[in-house]
Design a protein around this nucleic acid. Structure first.
Lengths: 198, 198, 198, 198
DNA sequence: AATGAATGAGTGTTCATTCAT
DNA sequence: GATGAATGAACACTCATTCAT
């Protein structure tokens, strides 16, 4: 079991990772300084180095945590006892919700090869494909159970991902629609990609 | 009329802008050095400064050129004597084609406010909204002429844009599908967002 | 009260300011590099930036310190219980002494508007006029108490300042006269400007 | 005799020197760019290099011309058939007049060794001492002919030079006194240094 | 664990200088 | 003679990283 000390350390690490995700998501990796990340937690950058080897390590662990959470989230939804369409709706809602709430647009997501290499890159790519695979499986279940039409799953999935990740670009907090309404509306239209026949 | 010299200068400027678009699109603004941009053209960075005030100016003019080209492209397509659906298909094709060919994913596109301010930001935002408006108008024409269903234009347009801009993320050159096949397939599915009724 | 750490920092800052005054005074602002200033203290320029925002800030604080010291010096002399003529002599002596010892000829002094702006310029100009005013008051006291003739104070003061600041130009360390003899001689002649009638 | 071409060249050279004197006098040597000097004459900096080897050469010839003019001026005044006191007055007037009109404060004058070396430095120093000597001789004549008191000539001369060169620092164009009044007033007080006995 | 201080590699930018036309 | 263009050396400044305390 984890000692009290270890727990405290783990908690601190997580705090830092959250701060990092938020600042890097907002300003971009290169535009974010260690100072920025530390300052947000009222720490000095020296302290951050106690918990993380270097900036790149911080990025890696941040992004990894982000992906793991998404994966956990999608897994939990998939375990729920609802039909594939409802599942997909929930998945999309929470995905959009996260993006809009955190205002986070990870450039890392666009070109992971530019930020990671070796085993780091492998792990990241693995998490991403597991997320993609999960999404795909929900879609396939939907097709098999007659909820969705027989689409090219890869293309459909990427249309859905692209459309969702783009939301940060155009969603305005002061807009006419609430987060929930927006999610619902987007989900509604994206569903069409899957549902109707030609 | 432009003198020979002026023409040469304009040409050089454009070369630099293209180089900048390509490198910045590939590596991101902050990760790109003036050296990178110059080296690609076998120039020294000093020379780049002969044509552009500073790095930010180069980014601004690069992105502006990119947007103006897109705008010109969409305008030309709209003038063609084909139905709205065919227009939209063409627009999507050339958009995806550009992204895939140039492998360009401008982070600038995600958060323009982080890169520009004042009149620069205004001009950029204006170009962007003109592009968006053009897209919207094609969609509206399609609706009015019975090609598309009566959708929320803003949401539909953003789903289309998001899905297209995301392509860079997953398109592999060595993939099974050619650029053309891919464009066509994506366009096909996106069309469903507009065409199918509930 | 100041902590030990804060004291140390303040001390370091002062060291840097002194180094800066000396090098800038010797070589001029533009000809002085941050390296020069740092090297003199066996530091790296990076360290200097830890204490000062930028080169201009360093210049400002240096010059401000210089002026504040002069002001403190003149104020202290004015508080002494000696007659105006003796005061003026002391003021001139220490002024010349400083210039000759530090070999400092601040170009900044010639055209402050070229180096400062806004509130910085205001503060600098304020310190300068307070020094000038102090000098003027000593002269006026001297006039009122019958030591000096009724001269145009502003002109007299500026003749004195000009003559003193010029010393750096012609004083040679190896010269026949010692610093003290020189100060005395100059003071003697400058006094004539104030003392004798036409 | 000079060919027409040579004359034209000489004229252009002089124009450039005047421009250089003016800009360098105003902004300082290091803060002045070749561009600044050329722009003032609607030239390009490339052209300046046709007439002058490099920036340092331009500075040297500029300063030399300045000194030669001063020397010519003082020589002409000395040749006039007026008494030493009148000569000195005229010399001071034209000196102050030049400084105030051109708003020129040559830092070069403060530390010539920082800007010149070798034979250049020698020539500059020679011109300066000839000017100083001329001034001295006027003072000595004045002493011999009973106009001035028996002062330490070197000190007196430097007080006069310092006071005059300082004028640029405090003379305001909008001030109460005209240039002429000012010169006269300063000359009046400086004369006291020479005239009054102890 | 935390931090103030120091460092140095890297990058944007300026500008004197050169040169082909 | 003049100039547009190109160059490279120098310099201000930033920031990830280290380390003594």
């Amino acid at each position: 079991m984890m000692s009290l000390r270890a727990k405290k350390t783990a908690k601190k690490k997580e705090e830092i990772l959250k701060s990092a995700i938020s600042v890097i998501g907002e300003k971009g990796y290169h535009a974010t300084t260690m100072e920025d990340i530390a300052a947000k937690l009222l720490m000095t950058k020296g302290s951050v180095y106690y918990y993380f080897k270097d900036k790149q390590d911080l990025l890696y662990q941040s992004y990894k945590m982000l992906l793991e959470r998404s994966l956990k989230n999608i897994t939990e939804i998939r375990e729920e006892d609802i039909d594939p369409e409802a599942k997909l709706l929930k998945i999309m809602s929470s995905h959009i919700d996260y993006i809009v709430t955190e205002r986070s647009g990870f450039e890392v997501g666009m070109k992971p090869e530019h930020f990671f290499e070796g085993s780091q890159l492998e792990i990241i790519m693995d998490l991403r494909s597991r997320y993609a695979k999960s999404l795909d499986e929900v879609i396939i279940e939907g097709i098999n159970e007659g909820y969705f039409h027989n689409v090219d799953v890869k293309i459909a999935r990427n249309i859905i991902l692209g459309a969702m990740n783009w939301v940060i670009q155009w969603y305005k907090t002061e807009g006419e629609k609430s987060k929930e309404e927006l999610s619902e509306a987007i989900a509604h239209y994206l569903m069409k990609v899957l549902k109707n026949n030609d």
